[in-house]
C-alpha cells in the first residue's frame, strides 16, 4: 500500500468493516473497488477447539475504536452446561499435563510468549478496540508477554523452591514436594483482559493444573484472540479452557461442581466473591478471592507475579521412606 492510502486505514492496517472502501494494490491504475471484509465469528476455547455456547446464546459488544468489526459483534454467552463441559475437558487433560516434565511445561509457556510477541500488534489493536489507549494497550501487551516468559522459566524451579527435605528424627528419608491441585475455576479480572487473564492462569498451568476460566466480558474479543494464540502455541487442548460470559451467572457454578478443587477469582463484586468463599466449603475448596484489585497491581512485578502465586497452585505432599539394609 502506498502511504497516501494508509491514511484510510487504521494504524494497524485494518480497514473498517462492511461499507468501507478499499483501494486496490494496483494503485497506479487508480481503480476503486468495493471489498467486503470478513468479520470473524468469535468463539470460546474449550478442549483446544473453538466452540459456540451449547445454549445458542450470545451477547453483543461494540468496538470502541475503528476496526474490522467495530460494528456489533456476537460473543458466545456461556451457560452452566458450557462450564460443565469445559470442566470435563479440563479434568481429562489434567493428569497428562501434570505428567509432562516441568521442563516441557516451561518450553510450552515460552512458546506462548513467542506467539504473543509475534502477535503483539494484533493484541494492541484488540485492546484499543476494547477501550484502552494505545499506550495502555502497548504496556499491557508487553507486561503479558513478559509474564509468560516469567512463568516459562518458573516451571522447573518451583519444585526446588517449594520442596524440602525434612530431617525427621528417625531412620527415614522424608521429603515434601509440591503437586498440582487439579482443576482450577478462574474468574479473570474484568479490567486488563489480557494481562489479568495471563496473571491468573499462567502460574496455575505452570504448576501442572488445568483451568477453566471466565474471561473479561468487557473485552471478550481480546480474550478470544488470546485463545487463538494459545491454539497456535504448543499447549495441549484442554489445559486452558476459556469461556466468555457473565461472571454473575457463571461463577456461582464454580461452587456447584465437586471437581472444582480450587478457585482464583477477581471481581469488584464483593458479594459474588463471598458467595464463592461460602460455597467453597462444601468441597473444602482452596479459594482465593481478590476484591477490587487496582490496575497497577497487575503491572507490579513484585505483587502481580511471584512464588506466592505458585504456592497457591500446589498441594504439598510429604513422602516418607525408611532407610535401612
Amino acid at each position: 500500500m502506498k502511504k497516501t492510502q494508509e491514511k484510510q486505514v487504521n494504524p494497524a492496517g485494518f480497514v473498517r468493516g462492511g461499507a468501507e472502501i478499499v483501494k486496490a494494490e494496483r494503485a497506479e491504475e487508480n481503480v476503486v473497488t468495493h471489498r467486503l471484509s470478513i468479520p470473524k465469528a468469535w468463539k470460546m476455547y474449550v478442549g483446544g477447539a473453538f466452540v459456540r455456547s451449547e445454549s445458542g446464546r450470545y451477547f453483543q459488544v461494540v468496538g470502541a475504536t475503528e476496526s474490522a468489526d467495530a460494528t456489533t459483534t456476537n460473543i458466545p454467552l456461556a451457560s452452566r452446561k458450557d462450564f460443565r463441559d469445559a470442566m470435563g475437558v479440563a479434568q481429562a487433560a489434567q493428569p497428562k499435563w501434570a505428567a509432562r516434565t516441568a521442563y516441557n511445561r516451561g518450553q510450552i509457556l515460552y512458546r506462548l510468549a513467542e506467539i504473543l510477541e509475534a502477535r503483539s500488534e494484533e493484541f494492541v489493536r484488540s485492546l484499543v478496540r476494547g477501550g484502552a489507549t494505545e499506550a495502555e494497550a502497548a504496556l499491557e501487551v508487553a507486561a503479558a508477554i513478559d509474564r509468560s516468559v516469567y512463568y516459562a522459566g518458573f516451571a522447573d524451579k518451583l519444585g526446588a523452591l517449594l520442596a524440602s527435605s525434612n530431617p525427621v528424627a528417625g531412620p527415614h528419608f522424608a521429603f515434601t514436594v509440591p503437586e498440582p491441585i487439579g482443576v482450577f475455576a478462574v474468574l479473570a479480572p474484568q479490567k486488563l483482559p489480557l494481562l489479568g487473564l495471563v496473571t491468573t492462569i499462567l502460574p496455575l498451568v505452570c504448576a501442572g493444573n488445568t483451568v477453566v476460566a471466565i474471561g473479561s466480558d468487557l473485552d471478550p474479543r481480546t480474550v478470544i484472540t488470546f485463545c487463538e494464540a494459545l491454539a497456535t502455541s504448543d499447549f495441549p487442548g484442554g489445559v486452558i479452557n476459556v469461556l466468555t460470559g457473565r461472571a454473575k451467572e457463571l461463577a456461582p457454578w464454580f461452587v456447584k461442581h465437586r471437581e472444582v478443587r480450587a478457585i482464583e477469582a477477581y471481581s469488584d463484586d464483593a458479594a459474588l466473591l463471598t458467595e464463592l468463599e461460602r460455597g467453597s466449603a462444601d468441597a473444602v475448596r482452596r479459594t482465593k478471592t481478590h476484591h477490587a484489585v487496582a490496575r497497577e497491581w497487575f503491572f507490579d512485578d513484585r505483587r502481580g507475579q511471584g512464588l506466592g502465586f505458585l504456592e497457591r497452585a500446589v498441594e504439598h505432599k510429604s513422602i516418607w521412606h525408611p532407610v535401612g539394609l
Binding site: 531412620p171 527415614h172 525408611p322 532407610v323 535401612g324
Partner: peptide, 9 residues
C-alpha cells in the same frame, strides 16, 4: 520374602 530393616527393628 524381603525384610524391611527399619520396620523390623
Amino acid at each position: 520374602p524381603t525384610v524391611d530393616a527399619v520396620a523390623l527393628e
